[in-house]
């Protein structure tokens, strides 16, 4: 069986570098020599998990980190697997780039981008300054996620590599350009622009849109590339998530498929997702006293004084 070693990051983020003996190649090298990168990887995985759960909070599959469920899903090639892989990759790029911008890594600034080969991008810092830190984030995230899959060419690997790339590109391609004028007397005869990383929330939403439009693929005859499953469609683009297996509907618990079922999940009747979430089984309504913070007075950075309010709320739970 194939070891899903490229992506169980989401499953146990604290074991990224455990079992060093079993890890070979670049990742082990990063683990041994660049503990700062590993630290950022932890942050990235945590960020990805949080975002995945936020984006899927109203769906049947809610990105639960329940080990049994996630393990099963990660061993397959479902749409959900695609999203998990993509958001994890995106989280790594985001976190490593941020760590680089903080100066927490000794060797990251002034990465020469691999994609730009033009004479005007001079590698010399004194001559022409530096490129964006996201190139470093992109490269490191790639090394970390794909170290073991370089020479494999089965469908699962190809799909995973593709989806990882979708995630990384979701960050790199959606950098926002911000400019500042500083010419004669501060006029715009001289202007410098730079790129700011997209909000991770936006990355999560973009990947969710991509998840909803994900394309099913089948291996091509040469075994090295993938074709769109529907006849006549071109091969999937670089920014669409792909999957190879149709997954369960996640309505009922199914251990073999990693489905936890939606029984007992809270749904929102006002937004009308109860029918969808409860798979038509209906829901129970309960009146509950919910205690929450209210009338908060917040003083940056770290002082919050809130009152505790108890509200009687009507909640709905799937049967």
């Amino acid at each position: 069986m194939h070891k899903a070693i490229g992506s169980p990051l989401l499953m146990d983020p604290n074991k990224v570098c455990r079992r060093l003996r079993r890890l070979r190649g670049r990742r082990s090298r990063i683990c041994r020599r660049q503990p700062e990168v590993v630290e950022e990887v932890h942050k990235g995985v945590a960020k990805a998990t949080k975002e995945c759960q936020f984006q899927f909070k109203d769906r049947r599959w809610n990105c639960s980190t329940n080990r049994r469920s996630l393990k099963k899903i990660l061993l397959k090639d479902l749409k959900e697997t695609a999203y998990v892989n993509a958001i994890t990759s995106a989280g790594l790029v985001h976190a490593i780039t941020a760590g680089c911008s903080r100066g927490h890594m000794p060797d990251c600034a002034c990465e020469v981008p691999t994609t730009v080969r033009s004479p005007t991008v001079h590698p010399d810092w004194t001559w022409g300054g530096c490129s964006d830190n996201v190139h470093y984030g992109y490269r490191k995230a790639r090394q970390f996620m794909e170290a073991l899959f370089r020479r494999r060419a089965d469908v699962k690997t190809l799909v995973m590599l593709h989806n990882n790339d979708v995630g990384r590109l979701a960050v790199r391609r959606h950098m926002r350009v911000v400019c500042k004028c500083h010419g004669l007397s501060g006029s715009c005869t001289l202007r410098t622009c730079w790129r700011k990383m997209p909000l991770f929330r936006d990355v999560g939403s973009m990947l969710l849109a991509s998840y909803d439009k994900a394309a099913r693929v089948v291996p091509a005859n040469d075994g090295k590339s993938l074709l769109s499953a529907s006849e006549g469609q071109p091969a999937p683009a670089r920014n669409t998530l792909i999957f190879a297996e149709r997954g369960p509907d996640f309505c009922l618990p199914n251990r073999a498929q990693g489905s936890l079922g939606t029984r007992g999940r809270r749904c929102n009747r006002a937004s009308g997702n109860c029918r969808e979430l409860c798979c038509g089984r209906g829901y129970n309504t309960r009146q509950m006293n919910v205690t929450e913070n209210c009338n908060c007075r917040f003083q940056w950075c770290c002082e919050v004084h809130c009152d505790q309010c108890t509200v009687l709320e009507t909640l709905h739970f799937c049967r």
Binding site: S101, T120, G128, G129, R195
Partner: peptide, 16 residues
């Protein structure tokens, strides 16, 4: 156009 680099560069530094 061919010899000189961009007139100015920037570095984006996140506060620690």
């Amino acid at each position: 156009g061919l010899v000189a680099p961009e007139p100015s560069s920037s570095q984006n530094i996140l506060g620690t």
